[in-house]
């Protein structure tokens, strides 16, 4: 259980290793090379430090779990045990024996339904709450309380209501992701400059036009902040929910692996989950930068 301490030692070691990276771009030679080298240097400066840290972590990890008495698997052992899972994410060898990529896709489908629903409903509710002072006063305290309820606490109620695992899992995603979307959208709507409201008034935009021509674009940076938090929470929630509801998702895979003591598989699944969560977050962030281009600066 002294893993975290070792980890921080690794992080502290970073400056020494990055010093080796620095001299690279400082050798401008021929014209073409002179142009390519700085770019390569830039890429190297971003890619090499995480790789070095990763290598260090693996080495320390291997060192710590090398003895046969170790309770957790070492990297080499994981490679031996779960090679098939690491190499081919999309194999199908039976109804419950499929690649982790396929499992992740199943989980992602659930997230897509739950989060998509949460996005649409959350933005609409947020718009109403942000528009009206009374709705804000009435609903905001309730939202603030409900949003602190942990995702899994919704699951029993959800199972009781839907009597089926699939919609229950989707509902848990929905109810987890919707609060940051509502709250951020409402704040964004409240922050629409009076100038834009005046323009809408002079042009006599109807409520529908006002919603999609002024409100949504103007509040877009806030809305995307909410969506980004929401998608992260969705991913957290689905893994937990699937552990309890079963099915072929990545969450249930971990639970199943634990019950049959396949610790190596669990580690591989954790890495999958981390990478996918990271990609989801970056995806929403990328969409946000494209959509809100120009909105941030007035």
């Amino acid at each position: 259980m002294n893993m975290p301490i070792r980890n921080t030692e690794n992080v502290v070691a970073l400056p020494q290793s990055s010093a080796e990276v620095l001299p690279m771009p400082a050798s401008p030679g021929k014209p073409l090379l002179a142009r390519v080298l700085p770019v390569l240097g830039e890429i190297a400066a971003r890619v090499i430090p995480p790789l070095i840290v990763l290598a260090l972590i693996l080495v320390v990890w291997q060192f710590m779990t090398n003895s046969p008495k170790a309770s957790l698997p070492s990297p080499l052992k994981i490679w031996q045990d779960s090679k098939d899972l690491i190499i081919d994410p999309f194999f199908v060898a039976g109804p419950q024996d499929i690649g982790l990529g396929l499992r992740v896709l199943t989980s992602l489908t659930r997230v897509a339904y739950g989060f998509g629903l949460a996005a649409v409903v959350g933005i609409l509710l947020g718009a109403i709450v942000g528009q009206s002072t009374w709705a804000m006063r009435g609903l905001d305290p309730i939202f603030q309380v409900l949003r602190t309820v942990p995702p899994l606490a919704w699951l029993p109620l959800s199972l009781a209501a839907f009597r089926d695992a699939q919609p229950s899992a989707i509902f848990v995603i929905f109810i987890t992701a919707i609060w940051p979307v509502i709250i951020n959208t409402a704040v964004g709507i409240r922050n629409i400059p009076q100038d834009y409201r005046n323009v809408a008034l002079v042009l006599k935009l109807n409520p529908f036009e006002y919603f999609y021509k002024i409100m949504v674009p103007s509040a877009a940076p806030y809305i995307f902040t909410g969506l980004r938090i929401g998608v992260g929470l969705s991913w957290l929630a689905i893994v937990a929910a699937e552990m309890l509801t079963g099915g072929v998702g990545i969450g249930f895979f971990i639970w199943d692996a634990w019950n049959s003591s396949r610790l190596s598989d669990i580690v591989v699944a954790l890495i999958y989950i981390g990478v996918v969560g990271f990609i989801l977050d970056r995806l929403v962030a990328a969409v946000s930068t494209i959509v809100t281009r120009g909105t941030a600066k007035a």
Partner: peptide, 19 residues
């Protein structure tokens, strides 16, 4: 009530930045 028959040019332009 406001309306387009009385168009206003505001001091701070108030153009919509996303358009």
């Amino acid at each position: 009530e406001p309306g387009p028959d009385r168009a206003v040019v505001f001091q701070n332009h108030s153009l919509l930045p996303w358009l």
